[in-house]
Each structure stands twice: as C-alpha cells, then as structure tokens.
C-alpha cells in the first residue's frame, strides 16, 4: 500500500525515477555536508559571545531588561494572536495591544517618564529591526489608505497628486529613499529642529511603504461592488460614512494577504539600514565581523543571521495566514 503510493508519487516512469534518485542523492550529500559543518567544523563562539549584541545591540548592561521586556511582550502577543480563538475575551483587546506596541517600544528603549534616557545610537540588534518594522508599518497603513482613497477620488487635483506621489515612490529604489532620507530630511527641516537617525529612517520607510500599501488597498477598493455604495446611499448615509463603514472594511479584508506580505518585506528591508549606519540585526553582524577578534567568521555569522531572519519572517507569515483565516470565517458567519 505504502510502497504503491511511493511508486505513484516518485517513480511513475523512468524519467521520474531518475529525477527522484538524483534528488535523494543530492539531499543526502548536502545534508551530511551541512550537518557536519554545523556540528564539527563551524566555530559558534562568535555567536555565543555576542548573543546580547545580536538581540539588543549595545544597550547599557544594567538597562537590558527594557528591550528584554519589550521583546518578551511581542513573543507573548504573537502566541496570544495565534491561540486567540480558544480564549473568547482575548481577540477584542488584540488590535489595541498591537497598535500600542510600537509607542511602548519607543518609551522602553528611549526612556523618559521615570526611565533613564538611552540614546538612539545604543539601540540595535533584533530589537531595532522590530522597532523600525512595527513603527513604519503602523504609520504607513493610514497614509496608504488616504493615498488609495485619494487615487480613487473624483476630484482631479487630489487624484493627480496621489497618483504622482505613488508612481514616483514606486519607481525609486528603497536604498535611495533611505539614503536621501538621511541626507535630505535635515535640510528640509527648519534650523534648530533635529531628529535622530532612527526616526529619519522610520520617516523614509513610511513614505516608501505607504505608496506600495496604497496600490494594494486600491486593488481591494476595486473589488468592492458598486452596489455597496448605492446601498449606503439608499440608507441615507453620508459619503464619508459609506467609505469608512462599508467600503474600507471590505477592501481591507481583500487586501489583507498583500498587506501582510508587505509587512514581511518591510522587516527584511530594514536590513538596508546596515549600509546606512544603523546597527540593526544585519548591521550588528557587520560590526561584529569588523572586530579583529572575529575576523573571517563570515559563514557562521551570516548563517546565524539568515536563520534568525527566517524564523522571525516565518512567524510573521504564520500570524498573517491565521488572521486571514479568521477574517474569512467572520465573512461567512
């Protein structure tokens, strides 16, 4: 029975059998090489010694509980989201918790209100990666919605301006937006007003990502049938009420898969700040490799970073699929 199934799935004809055998030998050879390297040849001391750096950057030693607390909260929140349907009362609070989560990060990292201030150049590692991602995501969603609505507006001036913004942003590479964000934002601000590198990066990410979100949301808006607006008008609702209460919720549900993909992409793209002088996860890896003590340990550091990014991104994707499923259920009910 099992043999028959295997034959059907992997050995149905000669060509198939040859492919299967080639793949099996390829898998065996590469797995043994990789496992041998991981357990015997690789020297993981560079990762072990620098573990706090990878997670928290060069945050002051006695204050490490702050990024630590914030990261644990994310982990708890992520698992709560995944398990939410089992506990009835949790789902109501989740959206509020997720939104308040980025400002909490700024407070815990930056200090103030009783916490000793820590300068942004001491922020780093995975903590900074997640801070950049969450803050930019939360800011760019409303901006993206406004741009998408603007592009669909019947007022030509607003429509043209939104289109121009979206199309220009989408044709420029991200690294250019980030680089010029670092250089030009101080030039555009009045003298005396200065913002640090992390906030400049967040502004640049927000400006860039919102153009992409806008296009995804526009796709969602176009999928909502015209009759929905007409139904709203018949009920005597104000156009603004129709947009916010009837059209947008449906559009966002349709756009959700692409929006969450953008979020995963955003997290990966925060690594670009490594070439622009922030020590987020990839940046801290580079600065560790620049340390003479660990010189030449490229493979260990890069493999470790890839694994870390993979776990975080896959977790994000899992949460996203879970959200999509829940939304779909809601629609049916």
């Amino acid at each position: 029975m099992i043999l028959k199934k295997i034959k059907q799935r992997a050995f149905s004809n000669i060509l198939d059998s040859i492919t299967t055998l080639i793949i099996i030998s390829f898998i065996i050879i590469s797995l043994t090489t990789i496992l041998k390297w991981i357990f015997f040849s690789a020297n993981w001391s560079v990762v072990k010694i620098n573990l706090p750096l990878f997670f928290f950057g060069s945050f002051p030693k006695d204050q490490l509980w702050r990024p630590g607390l914030w990261m644990s909260l994310i982990a708890i929140l992520s698992f709560a989201t995944l398990l939410a349907p089992r506990w009835k009362w949790v789902p109501k609070f989740l959206p509020i918790l997720w939104i308040s989560f980025a400002p909490l990060g700024i407070f815990l990292l930056g200090g103030g209100l009783g916490l000793s201030p820590v300068e942004s150049r001491n922020w780093g590692g995975l903590t900074l990666t997640i801070l950049l991602t969450s803050f930019s995501a939360i800011l760019s969603l409303p901006l993206g919605i406004v741009l998408a609505l603007g592009r669909q507006s019947e007022l030509p001036v607003i429509r043209k301006a939104s289109s121009l913004y979206i199309d220009t942003m989408r044709s420029v590479p991200l690294i250019a937006v980030l680089f010029f964000g670092q250089l030009l934002i101080p030039l555009f601000l009045p003298i005396g007003l200065e913002i640090n590198r992390v906030y400049r990066a967040i502004i640049a990410f927000t400006l860039f990502v919102s153009a992409y979100l806008a296009e995804d949301i526009r796709g969602g808006l176009q999928s909502v049938p015209k009759t929905q607006r007409e139904a709203g008008e018949v009920l005597g609702l104000h156009p603004l009420q129709i947009t916010c209460l009837i059209i947008l919720p449906q559009a966002l549900r349709v756009a959700l898969p692409s929006l969450t993909n953008q979020a995963v992409g955003l997290l990966q793209n925060t690594s670009l700040m490594a070439i622009l002088g922030l020590v987020e996860l990839l940046g801290i890896g580079r600065s560790i490799l620049a340390n003479p003590e660990f010189i030449g340990r490229y493979i260990e550091v890069y493999v470790w970073l890839a694994a870390l990014y993979w776990v975080v991104c896959t977790l994000m994707a899992l949460i996203a699929r879970h959200l999509e499923k829940q939304m779909a259920l809601e629609k049916r009910g």
Partner: peptide
C-alpha cells in the same frame, strides 16, 4: 524569508 542584502553579502 531572508533579506536580499544578507544573501548578496553571503
């Protein structure tokens, strides 16, 4: 699920 920049450096 891994950043392009990391892959390039690799």
């Amino acid at each position: 699920q891994t950043p392009l920049l990391l892959q390039l450096m690799f």
